[in-house]
Every structure is written in C-alpha cells, then in structure tokens.
C-alpha cells in the first residue's frame, strides 16, 4: 500500500503550472505541503471534484488538470467517468486515492471494499487507467501521470490517513477562489504571450 503523504510529496516536487483539484482529506494533506494559487478545492458537495476538474480542463486546455478524488467521493458521482470520457480532454488526469473508507467522515468503510476503480474507468473509456499499490510503481508512473495525453485515470491504493476533524474553512474562502481565478488568468495570458512569440 502507498503512503498518501509520500505520494503527494513526490508530486509536489514535480508539479509546476498544473491545476490541482483536491477534495476532503487529500485536499488538507495537499494544502499542508503545497499551498499554491493553482490549487482548487472542491467542498460542500461530495463527489463533484472531477466535475469541477472537467470544466477547468475544458476552459484551460494549456494546463494539465490533476483531480485528487476520494474513493467514497467518486462513488457518489460514478457517472462522471462516462461524462469525462465523452468530453475526453487530453489534459485531464483523474487520480483516485483508494483507502476503502470515508476517511473524512469517521473512517467508516465503503459499502464494498473490493471495488476496482481502474477497471471501472477503463470500461467507461478512459484512454489509460492504472492501478498502483507500491511506491516503486508510483515513482515509475509519475512521468506518465504528468505528461501523457488524457483522459488518464490513476487508482492509488493507499493506507487510511489521519482521522478526525479537519478544517476546511480556509479552503472555502472567497479569497482563495479569487487567488485561483487570478492565477489561471495570469497563466492564460502567459501562454498567449508565449504563443505569439513563436
């Protein structure tokens, strides 16, 4: 099994201008190590992280969009797998952190702990769907996660993280949303400028 914080740490070392859409427990862990303007947090409507990410991927084709979804969250919006593959943005990467529990809600188990999310994604039509459960495979797959054309799906089998109340108040803030809006606007301007110089 993978350690989520170690995986996030490796991703943090590699990520530059990618938009990261994170939700619940993974979001608080990600924010703790990577507080950056291009983070977008999905809260209040569990299951919708991938839908937010899909909209962002369509709106920002020059950015890679990494969605850090939860297993319980994805189960609340399984149709998103079909919608995402119908739209099929090449910059869309759907990462599901599979620990078998509703970690943000007290650690209760999923209705079934034998769900194979990568197989569901493959059947829905993702261009590529990986299931990764050990660190060396994760490290080997990082290049693909960060550069291959999507839509990609990555199921990471992780240990349950820290239980207990986590604070989402800061993530909800209007200031953070505005900072994100300005950051993507700035990046879009930079991309246009780079294009005009070519």
């Amino acid at each position: 099994m993978l350690d989520r914080m170690k995986c996030l740490g490796l991703l943090r070392e590699r990520i530059t201008k990618e938009i990261v859409v994170a939700t619940y427990s993974t979001a608080t862990d990600w924010l703790a190590i990577a507080d950056r303007p291009l983070n977008y947090f999905s809260f209040g409507a569990m299951g919708l992280a991938s839908s937010h990410g899909l909209g962002l991927a369509i709106a920002h084709p020059d950015h890679r969009v990494l969605v850090f979804d939860g297993d319980g969250s994805l189960l609340m919006n399984l149709g998103t797998l079909v919608t995402a593959t119908a739209v099929a943005p090449t910059n869309f990467v759907h990462v599901v952190w599979h620990n078998g529990t509703y970690e943000a809600n007290g650690g209760h188990p999923l209705p079934s702990t034998s769900v194979r999310f990568a197989e569901l994604a493959r059947a829905a039509g993702y261009r590529k769907a990986l299931q990764i459960s050990d660190m060396s495979a994760f490290e080997t797959s990082l290049d693909a996660i960060l550069s291959e054309d999507g839509p990609l799906f990555v199921e990471l089998i992780v240990e349950q993280g820290q239980l207990g109340p986590r604070s989402y108040a800061d993530m909800y803030s209007a200031e953070r949303r505005e900072a994100f809006r300005q950051a993507v606007k700035l990046e879009a301007g930079a991309s246009r400028h780079a294009g005009s110089l070519q």
Partner: peptide, 22 residues
C-alpha cells in the same frame, strides 16, 4: 452540448468553466 449523466455534474462543470470565462 455536453451530455452528462446526473444533474449535479452540470453544477461542477459549469463552475469550472466559469474560471476560464466560458
């Protein structure tokens, strides 16, 4: 036209699109 499976998906997608002025 983006056809979705359930209505709440539209809310998330629309929000994401709005950050790109779409």
């Amino acid at each position: 036209l983006i056809r979705v499976c359930k209505e709440d998906e539209t809310i998330g997608i629309s929000a994401g699109l709005s950050y790109g002025s779409i």
